[in-house]
Amino acid sequence: MSDRPILRVQHIAKSFGTVLAVNDVSFDVRPGEIFAFLGPNGAGKTTTIKMLTTLLRPTTGSLELDGLDVTMHPTEVRKRFGVVFQDPSLDSELTAWENMDIHGVLYHVARHARRARCEVLLRMFELYERRDDLVKTFSGGMKRRLEIARGLLHTPKVLFLDEPTLGLDPQSRNQMWTHVRNLRATEGVTVFLTTHYMDEADRVADRIAVIDHGRIVATGSSAELKQQTGTDSLEAAFLALTGTMIRDESATAADQMRQVARVWRR
């Protein structure tokens, strides 16, 4: 492991109008590690991921990915990471292969390499047999696997996974984490993930940062967090750090749209 962090976040803040969503957040992620970013709903996780993935500009502070300033060189930075958003971002009217192929073109992967890489990844994620089926016929777990396979197509240095196991059954979740853990060996990729399942973070993450109310409240390995809080499970540690109060998020326009769509699709 080299000593330069692959991700360096220094004193970033993001405000939307008068709301301060992320408030002076700093952390480093080392190359090759699996880094879990935990926090209750509305704590600032997704906003932070959006800033790291060039979708939002931080109000203040600096972000570096592989030594490149994220806001100064968004295009260069984009080539270096893959991302699986919380919401699916596949085209369900296209086949698995077509989704992969379009991604390859968008990331300037040459045709020959693209084919080879699509095949390797679809096999790795056990989707090769279904490559010519429309994505809308896939199960939730298959869609997630396809998204991860797609995110890896351009051989990124960092893979962002925003709640990759949300809505999956225990079997698919288990399989998902097996895949994620294998990635380090097969792809040498750094993984930055968020999840609400503490047992999962406990199992896969090398290091964990806990964010609450837009601020980092703890960083360290799972063992360190437990020790720090005097608890015996990561879940207990998490609750000790962030309290037991339930966070209400107001429904956004996106949530309302989703509801409309659910009715429409029937």
Binding site: L55, D87, D91, A261
Partner: peptide, 18 residues
């Protein structure tokens, strides 16, 4: 495009290095 925006594919193109 509204569909693509809410059901994801638009985002995939927006984070691409193009």
């Amino acid at each position: 495009m509204l569909w693509d925006r809410q059901f994801g594919f638009l985002k995939e193109t927006l984070v691409a290095p193009v």
